[in-house]
């Protein structure tokens, strides 16, 4: 029962995202046979070292969506303080209201059923532009971002070029 609600809601969100896609975002189920697994492409925000890059990510939805948030994982290389080396994205909108191990996130920033895939993707896009070094998921990247900004930007730009096969 819960999973029919979830798939209906996901289908609805898919339709909205497709008919009226936000700038620089393409998202949808990998295959409609499994509406709980999506792939999203996020364009790197302009004016940041991520500019011009396309970052694919995988979203996995729980069967009780939208009560609980999906998990999101970049499937390409993303050198960023809030992205684990495995690609897993760590931002507050992806955290259920209940679990806040660090107690720094406001409840309003966290996941709730009134949020949506679109909001997640937009938040992730702005996370790319503005890392949050309060909760580094990639310690090395966070240190580099803080102390050696130029090197950080160079590494990110190189990643962008490599991912688009331009060398």
């Amino acid at each position: 029962m819960a999973s029919t609600i979830a798939s209906r809601r996901l289908f609805h969100e898919y339709k909205l995202l497709t008919s009226n896609p936000p700038d620089g975002i393409t998202a949808g189920p990998v295959s409609e046979d499994d509406i709980f697994l999506w792939e999203a492409l996020i364009q790197g925000p302009d004016g940041t070292p991520f500019e011009g890059g396309i970052f694919p990510a995988e979203l996995k939805f729980p069967k009780d969506y939208p009560l609980n948030p999906p998990s999101m994982r970049f499937t390409s290389e993303v050198w960023h303080p809030n992205v684990y080396p495995t690609g897993l994205v760590c931002i507050s909108i992806l955290h259920a209201p209940g679990d806040d191990p660090n107690h720094y996130e406001k409840a309003s920033e966290r996941w709730s059923p009134i949020q949506s895939v679109e909001k997640i993707l937009i938040s992730v896009m702005s996370m790319l532009a503005e890392p949050n070094d309060e909760s580094p998921a990639n310690i090395e990247a966070a240190k580099m971002w803080r102390d050696r900004r130029e090197e950080f930007e160079r590494v990110v730009r190189e990643g962008v070029r490599r991912s688009l096969g331009v060398s």
């Binding site: 497709t18 896609p21 393409t26 949808g28 295959s31 409609e32 792939e39 492409l41 364009q43 011009g52 890059g53 396309i54 962008v160 070029r161 688009l164 096969g165 331009v166």
Partner: peptide, 26 residues
């Protein structure tokens, strides 16, 4: 359903190809 899938696929491809073109141009 199949058309939708194809459309999504095409949007993905266009996004990547456009990004690549832009980068090459730059």
């Amino acid at each position: 359903k199949n058309e939708r899938q194809a459309l999504l696929q095409r949007r993905r491809e266009e996004m990547i190809l456009n990004a690549r073109k832009k980068l090459e141009e730059k």
